[in-house]
């Protein structure tokens, strides 16, 4: 009955105070996912590299990292960083955290999403590194380059180009996964949509708005990555459009 009598009131999207809440929610989603992506990139590339270097120790560490962070649910990891991780710290550090980091949930979300996505980025980078023929590594070493130089000038630039398409997907997934942070109370855009609903009973409008926001940001990411792909395209190598 309630649904049949539902009257849409789109003004909840901009009416005070809800408009402000939504904008804040959008900004939080952006901050959360961009910071997480930054962590994922830096950490993921490092871990991926660790897994292919000819050193038993780095392979072990890299392998363990991927096993742990890729093979447990993101939701569980969010709960871990929010509820359990602070308890593992010494007492003074815990106290400092409660006093000085009021938005701890946000940072727990950033770390959880970043470290989880890093495990996936690592595997994709590894796939790129392994797609390069052995003789390509040998050719670079044969000219006298050191291991660091071989990876920096020859292997990494090539591998990164190879994995750009799956990277786009990963970036999008990271940004959509940020919605899960609502479970630990982060006021990102999805949580805000529900929150406004609890005051106004106009959840249909707010969740529609949230969906539209996700679609817009995703379109921007896709366009940005397509542009990047085009810019770094190797002439003669990658199929022209």
């Amino acid at each position: 009955m309630g649904i049949l009598n539902y009257t849409f009131d789109w003004s909840v999207l901009w009416r005070d105070p809800y408009g402000g809440m939504l904008v804040k929610g959008i900004l939080t989603t952006l901050q959360l996912s961009l910071l997480a992506w930054l962590i994922a990139l830096v950490l993921g590339l490092a871990v991926g590299l660790c897994r292919v270097l000819p050193l038993r120790f780095t392979r072990l560490v890299g392998g363990a990292y991927v096993q742990v962070f890729r093979n447990t649910p993101l939701l569980v990891q969010l709960f871990f960083w929010y509820f359990a991780a602070p308890l593992l710290l010494p007492k003074p550090a815990q106290a400092w955290l409660y006093d000085n980091v009021p938005n701890y949930a946000f940072w727990a979300g950033v770390v959880a999403l970043g470290t989880y996505t890093a495990s996936r980025v690592a595997e994709q980078f590894r796939a790129g590194l392994m797609a390069i023929p052995r003789d390509q590594y040998r050719a670079a070493y044969a000219t006298g380059l050191t291991t660091v130089q071989v990876y920096r000038y020859v292997i990494a630039p090539f591998a990164l180009r190879l994995i750009l398409p799956p990277f786009t997907t990963e970036f999008l997934t990271c940004f959509k996964n940020s919605a899960l942070a609502m479970t630990i109370g982060v006021m990102e855009v999805t949580h805000t949509a529900y929150y406004i609903d609890s005051f106004t009973w106009h959840g249909l409008e707010t969740t529609t708005a949230a969906s539209a926001v996700y679609l817009c940001i995703a379109a921007c990411i896709t366009a940005g990555m397509a542009f990047t792909e085009k810019r770094v395209r190797i002439p003669g190598m990658i199929v022209r459009r």
């Binding site: 023929p133 390509q136 050719a139 090539f158 190598m237």
Partner: peptide
């Protein structure tokens, strides 16, 4: 001091 040439060239494609 030792140059090497490979079967599949192995030029750096980028």
């Amino acid at each position: 001091e030792i140059g090497m040439v490979f079967q599949h060239f192995e030029l750096y494609p980028h």
